[in-house]
């Protein structure tokens, strides 16, 4: 247990801590130290299947190791596509656009293969990583909901944006079709019945995450509100004297070039 705490949970906690440190304005080396801690934390979390193989928590590290590759490909691909378009600064070449599309496509196909074929994350014991069955339905449902919401928002809030929203609706359609197929056709490692169960549990998960996050934000706002209310009022100072006003007028007139 102590080993799991030191080699998995502590490095996992280092990730948000490194983000906080990198935000600090008081420390000069904050960003550098934050980046170093982030890298150390990530490496130790990803290495947890080897450092703490007996701990059930290391299954999370195992999952992150499996999904790191396609996640980077998809996000980096989208970055290349986005910045090869009409951006005012740092525009990339047309070749980068096609490279980005290719990376995005490979990343998404990789995710699909992880579900349908033998690339599914499995533990050393040979059983399927149960966190994969939590991650993948959550990812698919979130992606479909977010793409649909963004597409509708583009149509409602944007001016003549129907052509641009089609990409988001296409992605939404593709994700929904994938979910329906996975809910009805068995993959090599997971049955469709299992997947259906995890899809409904994922919806419960997402509802819970939304409720919990809203509650946390409300408590955060209440703490700030009550703290600001308790702060003493700033000390009021005396109005400026005639001499001070004259001096100010002199400085202002010298700066705006007024002769009067």
């Amino acid at each position: 247990m102590l080993q799991a705490a030191l080699l998995f949970w502590l490095p996992l906690a280092l990730i948000p801590v490194s983000l906080w440190i990198s935000q600090s304005k008081k420390s000069r080396n904050g960003q550098r130290i934050g980046l170093i801690l982030l890298v150390i934390g990530l490496i130790l979390v990803l290495a947890s299947p080897w450092t703490v193989p007996d701990s059930p928590s290391s299954a999370v590290g195992n999952l992150f190791g499996f999904i790191l590759g396609p996640s980077i490909l998809v996000l980096f691909g989208l970055y290349l596509v986005a910045y090869s378009g009409n951006v005012p600064v740092g525009r990339l070449s047309v070749g980068d656009k096609y490279l980005g599309l290719l990376l995005f496509f490979i990343g998404m196909v990789w995710f699909s293969i992880m579900h349908w074929l033998d690339l599914t994350p499995v533990l050393d014991s040979g059983e399927i990583n149960r966190f994969w069955l939590i991650f993948f339905p959550n990812f698919l449902i979130s992606l479909s909901c977010l793409c649909l919401s963004a597409g509708i928002a583009m149509l409602v809030l944007g001016d003549n944006r129907s052509a641009e929203s089609k990409n988001l609706f296409f992605m939404f359609g593709l994700t929904v079709i994938f979910i329906l197929f996975a809910m009805n056709i068995d993959s090599s490692d997971a049955s469709s019945n299992d997947f259906r169960t995890y899809v409904w549990l994922s919806i419960a998960d997402l509802v819970g995450i939304m409720l919990g996050s809203i509650l946390a934000i409300i408590s955060f706002s209440l703490v700030i509100y009550s703290y600001e209310k308790r702060l003493p009022k700033p000390k009021s100072i005396l109005p400026p004297t005639k001499d001070e006003l004259k001096h100010s007028a002199k400085i202002i007139s010298s700066n705006i070039g007024d002769d009067e």
Partner: peptide, 12 residues
């Protein structure tokens, strides 16, 4: 991914 697709659609 959703933000990436949205941003890519807008810039293109």
């Amino acid at each position: 991914i959703a933000i990436g697709i949205l941003f890519s659609s807008l810039t293109h």
